[in-house]
Design a protein around this nucleic acid. Structure first.
Lengths: 160, 160
DNA sequence: CGCATTTAGTTGAACGTTCAATTATGTTGG
DNA sequence: CCAACATAATTGAACGTTCAACTAAATGCG
């Protein structure tokens, strides 16, 4: 016990407070947006993000792998998610013309319509719960901090 | 469509970039810590937090409601989680002496030992993936931002 | 070429969370 | 007092994610 404690550099009070604030804020923010999106659009935030990425892609279509990468999830997760979105009629799957292993997820008209209907309310939520309470300076600070973290986290991710 | 779009104040490029960076960073950070904790301690981060809260409470015990509040989750979630932690032998439940509806979650010796064994590695992970890449100033900025968000999010939470 | 390895994607089981319903106890106003 | 209401906690089903195992096709190399 002592041998472990001596070697561990625990969080100092500033760090601890920052860490707990971050945990609390990010969890509460995500939970709130998730709840609102589920209530208003009948989908969780994760599915909303999939639809957004598809809607931004050329032809509103992406390879499963690229879509998984873009939304920061595993291929397995995406398979399940797209299967669900297909049930809803918001996405369809097609064979990839250049790689016979591949599949392409395509946003349907109905999927696009659902997204277009959901987006204004969701953006309003992001404003109401996030940007409305931060100064321009804080938004810049948050961006810098998060982009720094992403730069270090993503390489980690690749080698696991 | 036009009537909706005209009324919606979309995110400007700065906001959009900040929002996406935040989404990416918080998701990647949590996923990484979750994976590490699952691998090294056999529990998800959510359960780690429950054990932390219990370990900090007087007598290492808390009412279910207080514990749910402290960990920022629903009572239902906590019921399920504590049931699981009880299976592991890390927590036990006792009747509350002052309220016959109440239950008190108590951290067991074994639960405390598991937490003590997991903590150094987890703290190292939080350092490695978060604090190592931020300046003192950025840590302060992050704390300010998150505490501001919490202050506005928590009242929302209460009236839902 | 032919065989091993890598890559794309899926599948089912286990897990943790949410949601709505339920039980049981406490609290409050008439 | 007691009837309505509020609070504490649990339960089971539905859902989304993870994990490991798997199929199939592409790639690399001897």
């Amino acid at each position: 016990m002592r041998t472990i404690d001596v070697m561990t550099r625990w969080l100092d009070p500033d760090e601890s407070r920052a860490w707990r604030a971050f945990l609390h804020a990010s969890r509460a923010l995500m939970a709130t947006l998730d709840r609102e999106l589920q209530r208003d659009a009948g989908m969780p935030h994760a599915y909303y993000e999939i639809l957004v990425r598809l809607s931004e892609a050329p032809q509103r279509r992406l390879r499963m792998s690229e879509l998984a990468e873009a939304t920061g999830g595993s291929r397995s997760r995406l398979s399940h998610a797209v299967a669900r979105l297909e049930e809803f009629g918001w996405v369809t799957r097609q064979d990839c013309p250049t790689d016979r292993r591949g599949q392409v997820a395509v946003l349907t008209e109905q999927g696009f319509a659902v997204l277009a209907a959901a987006a204004p309310g969701h953006v309003a939520g992001v404003r109401r719960h996030l940007f409305d309470h931060l100064s321009r300076t804080q938004v810049d600070q948050l961006r810098d901090i998060c982009e720094t973290l992403v730069a270090h986290l993503d390489p980690d991710r690749r080698m696991s």
